[in-house]
Amino acid sequence: MTKGRRSRHGATLTMVLAAVVVAAASGCAREAGEVSADQDGGVVHVACGATEEWCAATAEQFTKTTGVKADFVRLSSGEALARIQAGKGNAEFDVWYGGPADGYAAAGEQDLLERYVSKNASAIPAQYKDASGLWTGVYVGALGFCSNGKLLKEKGLAAPQSWADLLDPELKKDIGIAHPSTSGTAYTALWTQVQLAGGDEDKALKYMRGLHPNVLQYTKSGSAPSQMTARGEVAVGVIFSHDCIATQEAGFPDLQVTFPSEGTGYETGGVALVKGAKNPTSAKKFVDWALTPEAQEIGPRVKAYQFPTNPATEVSDKVVDLDTIKLVNYDAEEAGAAKAALTKRFDEEVAQAPKS
């Protein structure tokens, strides 16, 4: 009897030890980011850097097409990066969608994204994606000037045609631009100055200090200056051209878009997997779908006129032809690597400086 009891206890102990080993192995797999498909919740949580309307329409159409539920939080580029940083080790989001790729590159530097080469990425031109799969571009938008023609006429000024024109003392506190720490749009403007200065960050920051007295305020969101310009709070906003066109269509015909003659920067709006995503299978489905013409044709239906990256996508006639404007050589990876240090310098040397 004693021997029998020992055998049963031995068998029980063996089963417990086996369970512990399996659990430990499972834990290691999760730490390594290997989450099995059956652990996917059939939902995808998206940090969305596009407009609220575009985010909503995209989530709705993705669910309708794939049957996978999608929800989103609309965040500016800097906010999205901060939230993903805060969720490291316990991811809040599965996917980051929309917003300039230099933010994605900065996230990659911090090991916050999971590399994934989608089956649909082959359709996207090489200049609009990271070759290793860190991020893939879904749209392209060019930076420009959004002017209130009525206000400029009252001042006796023409719409700006160059970065130099923005330094005109007649535009004192009459320019709207976001802060590059929170806005991908504004960081694109800052990095554009670096490129125009031949890579000289000191010279770029000197230009921004010259612009500083003409800036009414540094907004958090990159698209906010279009609303400020429309309401007549400022005469000129430095924003992506598609945001100005959308605001113009919303009932502000006095707005007009111009592009700087020296050259302008552009964003490649990306999509990427968040490292440690709780729903990796659904997240990959979202990335795959985001690269299709079906997904990229949603923008113009909600007045978002970026240029699509998939060549098979139908292009709205309201989308700016990138071949008609002068673009700087904008390397998202280089811009992303420099972002933390450069925005810190901007805050200390430009944004906090007194306005004369």
Rank of each mutant, 00 (worst) to 15 (best):
E334C: 00
Y187G: 01
Q227C: 00
A59M: 12
L211K: 11
P125W: 09
E334W: 00
P180M: 01
R6P: 01
K3S: 13
G299H: 11
S36P: 03
G137N: 09
E333L: 11
P293H: 11
S241A: 14
Y218L: 10
V95Q: 10
I175C: 08
R115K: 15
A11N: 10
Q217S: 14
Q39Y: 06
D130P: 07
I325T: 02
Q296M: 08
G133L: 00
L166Q: 04
V43F: 02
G144Q: 06
F286K: 08
K344R: 12
Q227N: 13
A50D: 13
K155E: 13
E349L: 13
L205Y: 06
T182W: 11
R30N: 03
K220C: 00
K318A: 02
K318I: 07
Y266H: 15
K129Y: 03
E333F: 06
T192R: 07
V257H: 09
T63L: 01
V350M: 09
Q296D: 06
S76M: 12
V95F: 07
T2F: 13
A283F: 07
G10L: 15
D347V: 12
Q193L: 07
K284S: 07
T292V: 05
V22T: 03
V271H: 10
P253W: 11
V22P: 03
H242D: 10
L205K: 05
Q61C: 03
Q61P: 02
D200L: 05
A142T: 09
